[in-house]
């Protein structure tokens, strides 16, 4: 079993506020991990720092991806190395069609011009796999998309870019139950034994559809507890307040 991603004592701040205070995590190929946690615990910061968002400053520790530190890499270099972040709030790019965007992204990630025919075949097969309408690709990226459409567009990007390691940041937020199922089905279809998946979520409900082997609870910038799927159920049953109180007693 090969290690894909190793997060070592990762510390990060935004402005003067330290948010990550020493996160440790190892993800191997074929594994699905979930990070849960209350609001403000640093979940989205972790996702952004892993992808290299310049708004955050890493103050300590390391992120090792495929055996190499990515701390000094720009977001595009990380993407080309096989890292992918599905955004909690995908950003609209008016005037740029999804199909054009995807083509440039595929070329960039592969480091070569993919023949147009090959690209189209891939795009259409992935759209079919994810049950996405063909007209979807001609729309402007995230522009006027519903919550569900934005998340499906993220999944389509993941499908076409075929990353080695995908981080899904609150992919369930803003989705109704049908949309959640559609998106979860997509993730399950895309997951494969060579790939790692990190789900970041506030609620357990996503984990009913995508079953992680490992669940971690992030509290105040550190992983407070790790376990199997039962930990998510335990959290759901107790609620974060009780869990935090229990941690405080321990």
């Amino acid at each position: 079993m090969s290690t894909l991603l190793e997060i070592r004592d990762l510390r990060a701040k935004i402005g003067e506020k330290e948010i990550l205070k020493g996160v440790n995590l190892v993800i191997n190929a074929g594994e699905i991990h979930a990070i849960m946690g209350p609001n403000g615990s640093g979940k989205s910061t972790l996702a952004n720092v892993l992808m290299g968002n310049p708004a955050y400053e890493v103050t300590g520790g390391d992120i090792v991806f495929k055996g190499e530190s990515v701390l000094e890499m720009s977001p595009d270099e990380r993407a080309r190395k096989g890292l992918f972040l599905a955004f909690q709030y995908p950003v609209p790019i008016p005037g740029v069609t999804l199909v054009n965007f995807l083509r440039q992204a595929v070329n960039a990630v592969r480091g070569e011009e993919v023949p147009i025919r090959e690209f189209r075949e891939k795009l259409f097969s992935k759209m079919e796999l994810l049950k996405v309408d063909q007209d979807f690709a001609r729309r402007y990226v995230n522009d006027g998309f519903s919550g569900g459409e934005k998340k499906r567009a993220e999944m389509l990007q993941m499908a076409v870019l075929e990353p080695a390691m995908a981080i899904l940041d609150e992919t369930d937020s803003g989705l109704d139950i049908d949309a959640l199922r559609t998106v979860a089905d997509a993730v399950n279809k895309l997951m494969n034994p060579n790939m790692g998946l990190l789900l970041i979520t506030h609620y357990q409900r996503l984990l009913n559809h995508i079953r992680p082997q490992f669940v971690h609870v992030l509290v105040d910038g550190r992983i407070a507890r790790s376990g199997g799927p039962e930990l998510a159920e335990y959290l759901e049953a107790r609620g974060y307040d009780e869990f935090l109180a229990e941690l405080a007693r321990a």
Partner: peptide, 22 residues
């Protein structure tokens, strides 16, 4: 950041945003 997270260089990302704008 969004476009760069998909592999586009900063310059390519800026061009894409501008092309979309016009």
């Amino acid at each position: 950041f969004y476009l760069m997270s998909r592999g586009l260089s900063e310059e390519a990302a800026a061009k894409m945003i501008v092309n979309g704008f016009v």
